[in-house]
Amino acid sequence: MKTALVTGAAGFVGRHMEAELLRRGWSVDVCDIDDYAGGIDAHDIFRACRDVYDLVVHAAATAPHRAAIDGLPMNMALDLALDAAMFEWAVRTGQRRVLYLSSSAAYPIDYQRDFATARPLSEAMVRFDRYNIGTPDASYGWAKLTGERMAAAAVLAGLPVHVVRPFSGYGEDQGVDWPFGAFLDRARRREDPFLIWGTGEQVRDWIHIDDVVTGALAVVDADVREPINLCTGVGTSMRDLAAMMCAEAGYRAAFDLREDAPAGVACRVGDPTRMLDVYRPGVSLAEGVRRAMRALVGQ
C-alpha cells in the first residue's frame, strides 16, 4: 500500500487531498499547524518523524486568504519557517517525493495590476535566473516564491519535488474567509444588497477543488518536475460570480461594493497550456456553483 503524509489537513485543500488519496487506497497520515484542534503539529513531525512516505503533500500555510494576506504580513515568517522545516526534514529523512502547493500569488503583480496590461500568467513568468524576477502578491506571494526556491534547492540535494500553482480554488465546503465561501453564505441568506469587496470587477480564474486535487496528483503521476499552473484559463469577475450565486439561489440582488476593503489585483487568470499536457479540468464554474447550492439545500 502506498503511503502519504498530508500537511495542512485541517485546511480546504489538505482535507480534500486526504480524502482523494484515501479514496485511491493510500494509507494517509495527516498533520497541520499548531492550532489544529486535536491533531498533530506539523513542526513536531518535522522535528521527530523518521517515517519515509511515498508522497508528502505540503499544503499547510497560515491563513492564505485576502484579509490575512493584506492585514497580517508577518504570517510570511511563519510560512517560511514551516516550508524550511518541511524541506529540511524531507531531504534529511529521504522522503520519496514531495508535492509542494505553491500559489498563483507567486506571479509578478506587474502582469495583474490593471486590465490594460493583464495577460494570462504562464509558468515561464517566474524565473530564478533573472536579476529581477518580479514582485509577487504581498508577503504571501513572497513566501510561496521563496518556497519554490527552497524546492529547487531540495531538488539539487536529491529530493524529487513537484510544484503546482493553484489559482482561485473553490468548493461547496470552503470557509467564509474566501470569496466563494463568503458569496455562497450570502446567497444562502439571500443577502440584499449583496456585499462584494472592491469594485466587483476583479477577475479571477476559478478552479474547483476536485480539479485542484486531481490535477495536482496527475502532475505527480506524470512525474512532471517543472512548476505547473492549476487553472482553467477562464476569467470571471467577482460581480459575475455573485450574480451566478444569486441566480442559483433564486433571487436578484443589488451589490454593496466596498472599495476600501482588501480586494487584491485587478486580473489574475492562468495559462493552462502546460497543465493540459497532463490534466484537463472537469468542473465548470457554473457546475461548481450548482453543486455548492445543492449541497446547501441538502443540509
Rank of each mutant, 00 (worst) to 15 (best):
A152C: 13
A152D: 14
L156R: 14
L156M: 13
A157C: 10
A157E: 14
G158P: 04
L159Y: 12
P160Y: 14
H162N: 08
V164T: 07
V164A: 05
P166K: 00
Y170G: 03
G171L: 10
G171V: 12
G171Y: 06
D173N: 08
D173V: 04
D173F: 05
Q174N: 02
G175I: 04
G175D: 13
D177L: 08
W178S: 01
P179R: 00
P179S: 11
F180C: 06
G181N: 01
G181H: 01
F183V: 01
R186K: 12
A187H: 03
R190D: 11
E191D: 12
E191V: 10
E191K: 01
D192M: 01
D192C: 14
P193L: 10
F194A: 10
I196G: 02
G200R: 03
E201D: 15
Q202D: 04
Q202L: 00
R204N: 11
R204S: 13
D205K: 00
V212Q: 01
V212I: 15
V212K: 00
V213S: 03
T214E: 13
T214D: 08
T214S: 13
A216G: 14
A218H: 10
V219C: 07
V219I: 15
V219R: 01
V220H: 06
D221Y: 02
D221V: 05
A222W: 06
D223Y: 01
V224K: 02
V224Y: 03
V224P: 02
E226H: 08
E226G: 04
P227C: 04
I228V: 15
N229A: 11
N229L: 10
L230K: 06
L230P: 08
C231A: 14
G233C: 11
V234C: 05
V234K: 06
G235F: 10
G235I: 05
T236I: 11
T236W: 00
S237H: 05
S237I: 03
R239H: 13
R239W: 03
L241T: 08
L241Y: 06
L241D: 10
A242L: 00
M244S: 15
M244E: 14
M245H: 14
M245V: 12
M245Y: 08
C246E: 13
C246T: 15
C246I: 00
A247V: 07
E248V: 05
E248Q: 15
A249Y: 12
A249P: 09
A249W: 07
A249N: 07
G250F: 04
G250S: 11
G250V: 03
R252K: 13
R252E: 15
A253V: 11
F255Y: 15
D256C: 09
